[in-house]
Write a protein that binds this DNA or RNA. Structure first.
Lengths: 335, 335
DNA sequence: TGAACCAAAGTTACCGGTAACATAAAAGCT
DNA sequence: AGCTTTTATGTTACCGGTAACTTTGGTTCA
C-alpha cells in the first residue's frame, strides 16, 4: 500500500511557488495581519491557483484543536432535533467550528461508543441528548476535559453545561389541561421510552394520582414511534379500556397517528376523545382538528447551547450550570 | 496558549509501561496476529488500564486514510434520507468506517463549501444527494480522486457511482394513475424545488401534455415544504382553479397537509379531489384516507451504496456506473 | 548615535501516529 | 551443521501542519 503522496497540494508547494517558507504561508492564511500585504496577496493567489485544500488532521494534530464539535442525537428521523441543530450549527459555524453529527439509536451503550469515537477524532466539545450516561461514558467525558453540554432534560448534577426543560413538570401541566376540560379517564401512550419519555410518564402519573384518578390506562412499547404505531396503539387501548375519554400521547407522531385512527372510526375528537401530543412539531398545527401539545423552545435551546459553548471554548471556566428554557402548553382543537 | 500535553494517553505511554517501543503497541492494537500472544495481552491490559484513546488525526495523517466517509444530505429534517442513511451506516460501520453527515440546505453552493470542508477532513469517500454540482465542486471532487456516490436521481454522466431512480418516469407513472381513475383537471403542487422535484414536475407536464390536458394548474414556491404549507397551497389552488379535480403533490408532506385542508373544508377525498404524494413515507399509510404515493426503495438505496462503496474503497477501479433501483406507484385511498 | 523596539520573515522541534525497511532469534530443511 | 525462512520486535523517517523562539533589518527617539 503506497503512501498517498498523490497530487495533494500542501503548504510547502505554495511556499516553493512563492519563494518563502511554509510557516509564512501558514501565517498568511491564518493570521494575515502578520504578513506583508504584497506577500500575502501572492500567497493567496498561489494557493487559489494550485487548488490548495488545508489538511485539518495535520492542523489539529499540531495545534491540539480540531475546530469541531460533536453533536449526538438519538435518531436522525427525530424531528425534535432538527431545529435544535439548526441553532447550534448557525452559532458555531460562525465561530469556525464544524459540527459532527452522530446518532445513538436511543442506546446509552451506543452513546458510549460514539463518545469514544468522537474523542478519538479530537472534537473540542460534545453535545449530548439527555443527562443519563453509562459510567464508562461519564469517565471518558470527565477525563477528556473538553466542554460538554447535556440537553433536553434538566439535572441537579450537570457534568458541565445543562440546557433543557423540566419534562415531568411539562407533563403535569398538560395533564392539568385535560383535567380542566373535564376529562377523567385519561390514558397514556408511549413508544420507545427514553428517559425524557419516562419523565413525562411520571409527570402524568403524578398528576393523575394527585387528582385521585386511575393510572391504569397506560400502554407503552419499546418499538420506535411512528404514525402507524400511534393508530395501532389507540386501537389497542380502545379495545382494552372502552371507557377511555382522553389520551396523553408521548409525542406528536403518536398523537397524529391516534387522531387518524379516530377519523377512521368516526370517533369525534375532542368530543368523544381528547388527544394531546408533545413537542409542538409542525404537524400539530396542520391536522384537522389541530393537536394539543406542549411546545418546547427548540430553536432557543440550540441558540443557547451555541452561546454557552462558545464561551467555554474561548476559555470560560467549567462552572456546572443549568438553564431552564421552559415550555408552553398549547391547547388546540383536539382538547 | 500552551500545548495540550494534558493527561492524554498516547501509544508511547503504553509502550513505556509495558517496556516495548510504540510501534509494537501500534501493531498489537491494529494487527494483533503480528505480536506474540503474551505481549499482546499485556499491551491490551495496559491500554485499558491507562484509558488509551487513539488519536485518529495522527493515524489518518500518517496512513493517508481517515476511515471516514462524508454523507451530504439536503436537510436533516428530510425524512427521505433517514432510511438511506441507515443502510449506508450499517454497511460502512461494519467495515470500520465512520459516517460524517453534513447538510447542504438544498444549496449547491453550500454543497460546494461542504465538499471543501470534508476534503480537508480527509474523508475517504463522499456521498452526494443528486447529480448536479457547481463547476468548482466537480473540480474539487475529481481532483480529490476519492470514490464518490451520487444518489437519488440518475445521470448519463456519473462522476463515479450513481445509485438512484428515474424521478421523471416515476412522476409520469403517478400521473398515469390519476388519468386511469378518470381525473382530468389535475394540478401540481411543489415546494422548494430541488432538481429531483423539477424532474417530477417535468414528468407530470409531459404526461399531461401527452394526454392533451392542461398544465396550467401548477403552483410552486421556493419555501421549504411542510404540512402547513401543503394546506395553504391547496387553499390557493382551489381559489384559483375552482374546477380542480386532483393534485399531484411533490412530496408526502405537502400531500398530507393538503389532505388535512380537505378535511377542514369537508371536501371528499378521493371523491371530490384526488390526492397523491411522493416518496412513500410512513404518514401515507396512516392518514384517513391513506395517501397515494410513489414508494422509493430507500433502504435498498442505502444498502446498495454501502456495498458499491466498499468495493471501491477496497481498491476496485473507477468505472462510472449507474444503478436504477426503480420505484413503485402505490394507489391508496386518496386516489 | 546607539539602545530599544517592532515588523516580517525564518529555524527548529514537535504533535501522535504509521510505512518501510532492518535486525535478531527461533524454526525448518537438506 | 549450515543455510534459508519465518516470526517478533526495533529503527528511522515522514505525514502536513503549528508553537515558540530566533534572526534580520528598519524605525523611533532620547
Amino acid at each position: 500500500m503506497p503512501r498517498r503522496s498523490s497530487g495533494r497540494v500542501t503548504l510547502q508547494h505554495i511556499a516553493d511557488s512563492v519563494g518563502v517558507t511554509k510557516i509564512t504561508v501558514s501565517r498568511a492564511l491564518r493570521e494575515p495581519h502578520l504578513v506583508s500585504e504584497d506577500l500575502r496577496l501572492r500567497i493567496e493567489e498561489a494557493a487559489a491557483a494550485l487548488g490548495y485544500i488545508p489538511n485539518r488532521q495535520a492542523g489539529a494534530l499540531a495545534s491540539g484543536r480540531s475546530q469541531s464539535v460533536a453533536l449526538l442525537i438519538p435518531s436522525l428521523s427525530n424531528a425534535v432535533f432538527s431545529e435544535i441543530q439548526r441553532g447550534i450549527e448557525e452559532g458555531l459555524s460562525a465561530a469556525g467550528y464544524q459540527v459532527l453529527i452522530g446518532h445513538t439509536g436511543y442506546s446509552l451503550l451506543e452513546e458510549e461508543r460514539l463518545i469514544d469515537t468522537y474523542l478519538s477524532y479530537g472534537v473540542d466539545a460534545m453535545i449530548l441528548p439527555g443527562t443519563r450516561h453509562t459510567d464508562q461514558a461519564r469517565r471518558l467525558l470527565t477525563r477528556s476535559g473538553i466542554p460538554l453540554v447535556e440537553t433536553l432534560e434538566l439535572t441537579d448534577t450537570p457534568l458541565d453545561i445543562n440546557v433543557g426543560l423540566d419534562q415531568s413538570a411539562a407533563a403535569v401541566a398538560l395533564t392539568e389541561a385535560f383535567l380542566e376540560r373535564g376529562y377523567r379517564r385519561i390514558g397514556f401512550m408511549g413508544a420507545r421510552l427514553d428517559h425524557r419519555a419516562q419523565l413525562r410518564l411520571a409527570g402524568w402519573k403524578r398528576r393523575m394520582k394527585q387528582a385521585g384518578l386511575s393510572c391504569e390506562r397506560c400502554l407503552t412499547t419499546p418499538r420506535p414511534s411512528s404514525y402507524r404505531l400511534g393508530g395501532d396503539m389507540l386501537a389497542s387501548m380502545l379495545e382494552r379500556w372502552a371507557d377511555l375519554d382522553g389520551v396523553f400521547c408521548n409525542n406528536d407522531d403518536l398523537a397524529a397517528g391516534a387522531l387518524f385512527e379516530c377519523q377512521r372510526r368516526h370517533l369525534d375528537v375532542p368530543g368523544q376523545l381528547g388527544l394531546a401530543g408533545f413537542n409542538g412539531l409542525d404537524i400539530t398545527e396542520a391536522t384537522t382538528p389541530t393537536l394539543a401539545t406542549v411546545v418546547t423552545p427548540r430553536r432557543r435551546i440550540g441558540d443557547l447551547i451555541a452561546r454557552k459553548l462558545q464561551a467555554r471554548l474561548q476559555g470560560a471556566p467549567l462552572v456546572p450550570c443549568r438553564e431552564d428554557v421552559g415550555f408552553e402548553v398549547v391547547c388546540r382543537g383536539s382538547l
